[in-house]
Amino acid sequence: MSTVILLTLTGLGLAALYFLVASGLSLVFGLADVLNFAHGLFLGVGAYATWWAAGNLPGAGADGLGFVVAVVFGVLAGSAVAVLVELVLIRPLYSRTIEQVLVTVGLSLAGVALLQATWGADARPFPRPGWTRDVTSVLGAQVPNAGLLLIVAAAVVLGALLAFLRFTRYGLIIRAGVENREMVTALGIDVRKAFTLVFAIGGAAAALAGALGSVYFGTVSPGQGGSLLIFAFIVVVIGGMGSVVGSAYAAVAVGLLQQFVNYYGTSGLGDLCVVGLLAVVLLLRPQGLAGKVAHA
């Protein structure tokens, strides 16, 4: 029994990581039609900025409030890079979908190489508060605190995103834009401002995933975002592009499936099952679980 609980909670921890990456990808894709390969870079920037801040930024550190400051710095850095990417690289190619994807591909290659050039290719130990290394006993299962932290963070982000989409003017514009971007402009709204906003939000969420994921794994390396990104893409497709709620459901399904099958089957089999799930969903519902609709 305790094994099942442990697997469920670690699976949810993984799901939390996927959700943080996928929610931004999904919104960016749903609204702006940009398949953002550079999203993994935002994650890397978040992780390295947190790592740097913990060691160098006054007031920040590896423990207590200092760690919170470091993570906030990392999230802001990820968000800032995302905004910069949107304004400088994506916006001039507005509505030229393929070129935009190509630019993010180039950016993901060059960006990771830049991280590698600056901090080396090898994984570095990540500063983390002492309590995140401990475990908490949940119904007899010894669950790592770092995993629980991820789950809580993802839940908070999910709640905040839904509230933002439902109750704010920009949330309304984003929901409408996911459905029919052209019609939003035909109502006199400059939808490109909303693009910048979803990049900022997506960058922040990915950077948070980078920082907290590094706490979970204990190390940070330049290529970290790459492998996560592929599963996040799968989550986005299964959940339906543009749907935050769909991403959350799909992340949970993928995380749990992966964790359980990898444990009870051979290692790696869970990853394969996830792709199998993707194929099944696509054959049954080509538009994904939630379709191209931003549900609030």
Binding site: L89, E99, V103, S108, L109, A110, A117
Partner: peptide, 23 residues
């Protein structure tokens, strides 16, 4: 010198420039 020693950085950057200026 650090970024220039990464082939992928150089190629990625050239690629982005190519998308913009030499479609």
């Amino acid at each position: 010198s650090h970024p220039l020693s990464q082939p992928l950085f150089v190629l990625g950057t050239v690629f982005i420039l190519a998308v913009y200026f030499f479609p």
